[in-house]
Design a binder for these strands. Sequence first.
DNA 1: AGCTTAATGAAAAAAGTTATCAATAAGGTC
DNA 2: GACCTTATTGATAACTTTTTTCATTAAGCT
Lengths: 155, 155
Amino acid sequence: MKKVINKVETSWQNVLSENGYRVSGPRRYVMQLLESNAQPMTPLEIYQALSQSGRPLGIVSVYRALELLAELGLVCVVYNPDGSAGYVVGAGGHHHHIVCQNCHQAIAFAGSEDLSSLIQRVEKETKFHVSDHLLQLYGICPDCQKALADAEEEN
Amino acid sequence: MKKVINKVETSWQNVLSENGYRVSGPRRYVMQLLESNAQPMTPLEIYQALSQSGRPLGIVSVYRALELLAELGLVCVVYNPDGSAGYVVGAGGHHHHIVCQNCHQAIAFAGSEDLSSLIQRVEKETKFHVSDHLLQLYGICPDCQKALADAEEEN
DNA sequence: AGCTTAATGAAAAAAGTTATCAATAAGGTC
DNA sequence: GACCTTATTGATAACTTTTTTCATTAAGCT
Ligand SMILES: [Zn+2]
Ligand SMILES: [Zn+2]
Ligand SMILES: [Zn+2]
Ligand SMILES: [Zn+2]
């Protein structure tokens, strides 16, 4: 477990340098793309999007950039409702994501104290010591709620 | 979305037949193996374990069996702490899994009402309509707690 | 500008998953 | 129990995704 420097105020460029990594082209492309996209993207999707927008980089670099950025907490893995996984930019601190089942838009919500009573219950029931958790919510985003309601009206 | 017959009292064999599927060798092997294993297993691990214990079956059948069994709710996908995923037998009804970070043993806990207040908060914050969730807890199981404590003593 | 070395890209290898189709066997009928 | 129908299987191949290798490139420092 490597200690990661990642203060809330610092930019992702600083997080990279302060941890001894270079701010290279591929890392910049990937971060900028994810920052501009609310949908979780797979390595292949990222590679294709960047290639099309004139960023010449190998897909291997996408994998490597994502691995590092994830280790530094700059990007997060999000599981789509269908079980496939993608990457989004990571909010700082303890948080989770809510994903739209319709358009796959994912946004973060703060997670402080979110599960303390549940965890207490489960620890008592199972005798496990709980130290971490994976949580995601699935639903319909405001935009899709509107779009779906409009579509309904037309029938 | 196909309607699945899966009453709590009925055995997995009945779930298969009542939904029009046959109780075939591979499906039996996979279910029996997962029932005897608390650790989530990948398709490859399942294939290797069954082959070694003298069950001649193709890995393709493992994939197909898992796909069907998951659709019927007889097995569940569990994400290991390292992000890899495996299958375990599925408990009935609304539940989640807690996974040991040391031995990967996974056991289910009931999930009724587990997140209602959190979900209310997030719906208000994000304006999403929440309809589903993914939740897993990570920790140390009773066995590993004991083993780790014993190892500690020896120092 | 020049140096050092982390980081990249291309290609190949490895790993994981899906599609195809003839052969097999599960479950029902007589 | 033998027979029939057809869902299911296994072997192969195709395909997709991820990792490894290593010579080349470029980020950051002096
Ligand atoms: Zn949406
Ligand atoms: Zn949380
Ligand atoms: Zn354990
Ligand atoms: Zn739940």
